[in-house]
């Protein structure tokens, strides 16, 4: 059967997921630069560890690399071998998560995604992603994205950390670590 062009709404959905993954990748890099707690989590990963979050069969996706001391660097595509891969089985599953229609944890528990790699590291990175979403999303949206919104996060810390993350997202190209 000849390959047909998808209707516009499906192409827009793919574009939305692509953009959100790019934002998430940059936000993860920024979070690792501004948040000590996240760095503590990431430090346990081996130096050079590459994590990929992607959609089957051929993307879109994001990759982050641990460059040491808890710092992550975002790549649009992994340059080399991937140590931990989380792959959504379909673009519609990824859309549900990045459009905050379904919590990441629920999507994972429902087997909408496949994990390949060290599960302990996957658990750590899930906590980091949750923390990133807690900071960068408005409280109402964050509650829909994470399993449990932290009750002990002061509004001032959320606002200042979010501002610092967004500033870095807007001013920083992919694949380049920020000079400390």
């Amino acid at each position: 059967m000849p390959h047909q062009r998808l209707p516009l709404r499906f192409r827009l959905r793919r574009l939305y997921v692509t953009v959100m993954f790019a934002v998430m990748g940059r936000a993860l890099q920024a979070l690792s630069e501004v948040d000590r707690q996240s760095r503590r989590e990431i430090t346990a990963l081996p130096h050079g560890f590459v994590f990929e979050l992607t959609v089957m069969p051929d993307g879109p996706g994001l990759a982050v690399e641990h460059t040491g001391n808890g710092h992550l660097v975002y790549h649009r595509q992994p340059a080399g071998p991937v140590d931990l891969s989380i792959r959504f089985k379909h673009i519609s599953h990824a859309f549900r998560v990045v459009a905050f229609q379904e919590k990441t944890a629920v999507s994972f528990a429902s087997e909408r995604m496949v994990v390949d790699g060290n599960i302990a590291f996957a658990v750590r990175l899930t906590r980091v992603i949750n923390r990133m979403e807690t900071f960068i999303l408005p409280r109402a949206l964050a509650k829909r994205a994470v399993k449990e919104y932290p009750s002990d996060l002061p509004i001032t810390e959320k606002a200042t950390t979010a501002a610092r993350i967004y500033l870095r997202i807007l001013t920083h190209p992919a694949g380049t670590p920020r000079t400390q």
């Binding site: 944890a105 599960i119 658990v123 750590r124 949750n130 449990e148 932290p150």
Partner: peptide, 11 residues
């Protein structure tokens, strides 16, 4: 760090 913790209803 155990994988089962992802399926627990509370964070």
């Amino acid at each position: 760090d155990d994988g089962s913790i992802l399926f627990n209803p509370r964070e």
